[in-house]
Every structure is written in structure tokens, then in C-alpha cells.
């Protein structure tokens, strides 16, 4: 009480001293109010996050809301149509469309095969490299190389490797007495070829995560276990895996999201989604429907479905990894 009182009287004194210039008094009082406004933790905190919120709203929230709205409308730009509300019909059309079903299935298969492969290969490589081996830094550099290549180049490189006539792969399997294969044009093989290219490009990502994780496991954990007499498998099962689990989960989540929602360049340059939609995946299909056929409403609905499936997928992965 007394402190508040003395503070008030101090302010009054201050006011009296400069009373001959009323401009100053006005400024002084305003500044004080503003200062107190700033001093409150809540407002200050809000002020700090405000720019981020604004940016987030402009580049994420607003487009998302706009997209939700768009997905309930029909708007075929190619025939100069006006945007008009059609309710859930875009969604119902998608689910009854055999092509969409095929694309959704393709994308799920792609994700379900490529991500576990990347995890197994990435983790395996990390386990190998993290041992005390000669020339570790060279192996590290080589293993990280695919990650530094732009995805479009990955697609083009593999397209060249897979080529029927001038590719590298067919002569290579010829050595083992196998006939040339139509890696990209055979509908039953094309998806496999795309997955191989993607695993080649993205396993290093998982590798790096795991390698970093392994480096952080305190050595004493292994030494203590060594005294207890663990086998190599037990070491992996009881120390390595639980020690890097957190990092592994993050790597898997990122990879699963990327595989499901962002696999574009490699497929687009490698097969263009062909042959006969055998490798068409959701991101490519969304692009095709929305920006090539200009069916904006339906494209938006496909994007929404992708988002929802991704969320469900993440929840499932997290549930599994919680154990």
C-alpha cells in the first residue's frame, strides 16, 4: 500500500517539475501507461509471438481454411465455370472413383514399403558406421551424398539407370543371365523401381538421424552391460534401440509424412505416374487434377483427404512406437 502511494506521489512530483511544458506531461503519462502495458507478462508474451502468428496465418491457416472451403465447391477453371457450392459431392466422387482408389492404394503401398526399408537400411548403416572403423568420415560423406542431390536429379539419374536400351541396370542383370527388364514401363515393376530410387535417396536421411542418435548414447551403458554379459542382440535390444527410440520415432514420422504427402519429383521425373497410373501417387494426382485439369474443387478435396489420412497415419505410428 505504502509503496504504491509513494510511487504515485513521486509521479506527481515529477509532473509538477515539468508542469510548465504541458506537452511533456502528456508524453510522460502516455509513456508510463505504455510501459506498464509492456511490463505485464501476458501482453509482452503476446507481442513476441504476434509476428509468428501473423506469418503462420498468412501462409498456413488462411490457405488451409480456403482449401477446406474450396473442397466443398465445384470450380472447373478449364471450362470457365463459376465457383459454386456442391457440399460433399467432391468427396463422394473421389471415393467412388476407381482411379482415386488406385492412387490412394499406390501411395499407401509406396509409404508402407519405402519407409520401413529406409529405416532398416538407415539404422543398419548407422550401426555399422558407428563402430570404430577406419575411414569412417569417407563412408559418412559417401552415404550422405544421395541426400544432397536434388530429388529431380535423383529421378533423372535413376531414369537413366533404368532405361531399357541405354541404361546400366539391364546389362548388369544380363551378366547374371537375366533378360532385359522394362523397369519403368512394366506396370507390375514400375512401383518397385520408384521405391528403390526413393529408398536410395532417403535412407541417408534416416541414417544421419540414427547415426547422430547412436553417437549420443553414453558409452558407459554399453560397458556396464558388457560386465553383465549381454550378447550383441541384447545390446541392441536393451540399450541401442531404447536409447535412440525418440530420435528414430521422429525420423520415421518425418519420412512417413514426406512419403505420403510430398513424394513428387522422383515419381514425376521417373514415370510421370505411369504406366497406366501404376505409380500415380497422391501428390502427383492432386497436381494433375488441380493444376493440369484445373478442377480446383476436386483437387482441394484430394488434398484434404491426404491431410486427414496423414494425421491418422501419424497417430497410428505414435501409438505403435509408444510401447
Amino acid at each position: 500500500m505504502s509503496e504504491a502511494g509513494s510511487r504515485r506521489s513521486k509521479v506527481k512530483n515529477y509532473g509538477e517539475k515539468i508542469i510548465n511544458s504541458d506537452k511533456f506531461i502528456v508524453i510522460g503519462i502516455n509513456l508510463r501507461g505504455f510501459h506498464q502495458f509492456l511490463r505485464s507478462k501476458k501482453t509482452l508474451g503476446l507481442l513476441f509471438v504476434l509476428p509468428a502468428v501473423v506469418v503462420l496465418f498468412l501462409v498456413f491457416i488462411y490457405p488451409l481454411i480456403y482449401n477446406v472451403d474450396l473442397s466443398f465447391n465445384q470450380w472447373r477453371l478449364a471450362i470457365g465455370e463459376e465457383k459454386h457450392y456442391v457440399g460433399l459431392s467432391n468427396y463422394s466422387y473421389n471415393f467412388s472413383d476407381p482411379l482415386f482408389q488406385k492412387v490412394l492404394k499406390n501411395t499407401l503401398i509406396f509409404t508402407a514399403v519405402s519407409v520401413p526399408l529406409e529405416v532398416v537400411i538407415g539404422l543398419g548403416l548407422a550401426l555399422l558406421i558407428s563402430r570404430k572403423i577406419r575411414g569412417r568420415s569417407i563412408f559418412l560423406a559417401i552415404l550422405c551424398l544421395p541426400m544432397m542431390v536434388a530429388p529431380v536429379i535423383v529421378g533423372l539419374t535413376w531414369r537413366w539407370l533404368y532405361a531399357w536400351d541405354y541404361g546400366l541396370l539391364n546389362p548388369l542383370i544380363g551378366v547374371f543371365g537375366m533378360g532385359p527388364t522394362n523397369w519403368l514401363a512394366d506396370p507390375s515393376i514400375a512401383m518397385f523401381s520408384v521405391i528403390v530410387a526413393d529408398v536410395w535417396a532417403m535412407a541417408p536421411f534416416v541414417f544421419l538421424f540414427c547415426y547422430a542418435g547412436l553417437r549420443m548414447v553414453p558409452q558407459e551403458r554399453y560397458e556396464s552391460a558388457e560386465i553383465d554379459g549381454v550378447s550383441s542382440w541384447q545390446k541392441f535390444r536393451y540399450i541401442t534401440l531404447p536409447s535412440i527410440k525418440g530420435i528414430l520415432v521422429i525420423a520415421i514420422l518425418i519420412r512417413a509424412m514426406d512419403a505420403f504427402t510430398k513424394i513428387f519429383d522422383v515419381v514425376y521425373t521417373l514415370t510421370g505416374g505411369g504406366p497406366a497410373y501404376a505409380t500415380e501417387v497422391l501428390p502427383v494426382y492432386t497436381y494433375r487434377v488441380g493444376l493440369i485439369f484445373f478442377r480446383l474443387g476436386r483437387g482441394a478435396s484430394i488434398a484434404m483427404i491426404t491431410l486427414l489420412v496423414t494425421i491418422v497415419m501419424i497417430l497410428i505410428i505414435r501409438k505403435i512406437m509408444k510401447r
Binding site: P218, E220, R221, E223, S224, E226, I227, D228, G229, Y238, I239, P242, S243, K245
Partner: peptide, 21 residues
């Protein structure tokens, strides 16, 4: 003899407990 066959037990400075157990 490997550590496991020496029938010794060690307490590490950092304790080396398994944080996830």
C-alpha cells in the same frame, strides 16, 4: 577373460543407469 567372466561389478561415475527402464 572378458568382463562378464570376471565376476566383478562396477559402479560408474555417471552411474550408467538405463533411463528408459
Amino acid at each position: 577373460l572378458p568382463p562378464k567372466d570376471r565376476n566383478i561389478a562396477m559402479v560408474f561415475q555417471s552411474y550408467a543407469l538405463y533411463p528408459y527402464m
